[in-house]
Write a protein that binds this DNA or RNA. Structure first.
Lengths: 154, 154, 154, 154
DNA sequence: TTTT
DNA sequence: TTTT
């Protein structure tokens, strides 16, 4: 089908440092969880309510994956453009599951660092993956970091 | 957290007529599936590939829910703006599941009909609410609410 | 300054056939005027009012310039993404003027045909460049380039 | 014309403190210049080039005009959504001129502060209009502030 | 389930 | 100049 648009624009904060992996074809893939927060007035109670939304972001765009790996860290604020993609997978019980991700495809999308006062000053220290990577502290994820939990969609 | 943006822009075609239901508070809620299609060149084979993506759209905005009910139908093309929301639910096996939807919240978002040559000519026939609304046949969701089904992402 | 975003999203109709010209470096540049319409309720009178807005669109992206040249015509509806750019020029009286355009730069932006029922059926007849291209008549810009005219914003 | 979209998304920095005025009907109108910066590689020379773009932003949305008046200052970074509007005016020589603005209309648009570490800490001191208002210093406008110049589109 |  |  021609004639369609699938675009997501997010401004939010990373829940933790990005995860970097390499595809079978050797391409770098960077992913992370991004928190946004919606605020609204509850119709019934009239109270101000807030809801944190976690988005799974996956970057295939080579240039932007590089930028993400070098400059994004837990707590950083970022503007990004990607598209929605729902992926099917099978859980440990053999059940089919679906996860919706915001994908920045090759040669597409956008990634803009928004609090880059010291972006160049503190590049990621090389670390062995698998270690906890919490040196950037400082920012508390609104309601725990879903990446560390079980039973979550990503 | 202040300072965030959660925005989705879609242009696509409805997979079937919208589903209209009423919330406990009496508000009309309109939902439908929207297809978009991504086309890209496969890195390996060099071939043109296409992937259809299905989005679950839910409209709480009263004015836009009215427009959707009156003018959207299976196959129609629409531009919309909403935000991403992931909802937790429990399937029939007692398993927790997650569904990501594009939500057009009250007083927010956008909905623009794009092939409205005859939009005013063939409005949906008025029906008593509560009746099943299956005149366009096709895919038969048991309670008229696909969210209750197993084995589908939405 | 890093950390900025300059994005325009338009859905509208072309006022006339696109103008195609070639840059000094040989690149094809396609431009056209696009109409959008805003509707709102006048605060004072309570009446529904409508205002048509004309946007000057200029495409440098090679792939999209090709698509535009081949498929866009007067009256066609299109979705596009570009960025805002204000250009300074000097009118015939020697006065400095400014024109704001929606630019789709090389390797950037988006162009999606929205009423392409017959897009493939009636491609623009190939013409030798340099000839006037006025088969769709209407508004006759002297050099085929409205940017050179007085008394119009673009 | 139904079926159109006219949307601008900007992330940029204010060139100076916003200007606040009151319409004849008593509504508050807030306006300011916002700088964005485009970076690209020059085709010919292969060099990295940068161009600062100044956007004239006008806010009619009451709630967002309040937010802008209270929290926006010279140098602050902001995300906003508005629409393009070209306004005709007559210069001192009696010539017709056109200015394109990014308008946030009543009940529409978006305004999100992006560096609000201390947004609540340093609200604008009430000042007599007409005074220079440069207490927020610190950020140099990329190439001088066009609002202070003659011969510019806004 | 859409559309081209 | 478009479109509804």
């Amino acid at each position: 089908m021609a004639g369609s648009v699938n675009k997501v624009v997010l401004v939010g904060n990373l829940g933790k440092d990005p995860d970097v992996r390499t595809s079978q074809s050797g391409a770098k893939i960077v992913s992370f969880s991004l928190a946004t927060s919606d605020t609204w007035n509850d119709r019934a109670s009239g109270e101000k309510r807030e809801r944190t939304e976690w988005h799974r972001v996956v970057i295939f765009n080579e240039r932007l994956a590089d930028v993400a790996e070098r400059f994004l860290r837990k707590g950083r604020k970022v503007y990004l453009e990607g598209s929605l993609q729902t992926r099917k997978w099978t859980d440990q019980g053999g059940q089919e599951r679906y996860t919706t991700e915001v994908v920045i495809a090759a040669y597409r999308g956008e990634l803009v660092l928004l609090d880059n006062k010291d972006a160049g000053d503190a590049p990621r220290q090389q670390q062995s993956r698998g270690q906890n990577n919490q040196q950037s502290g400082g920012w508390d994820s609104p309601q725990g970091n879903p990446d560390l939990d079980d039973d979550i969609p990503f």
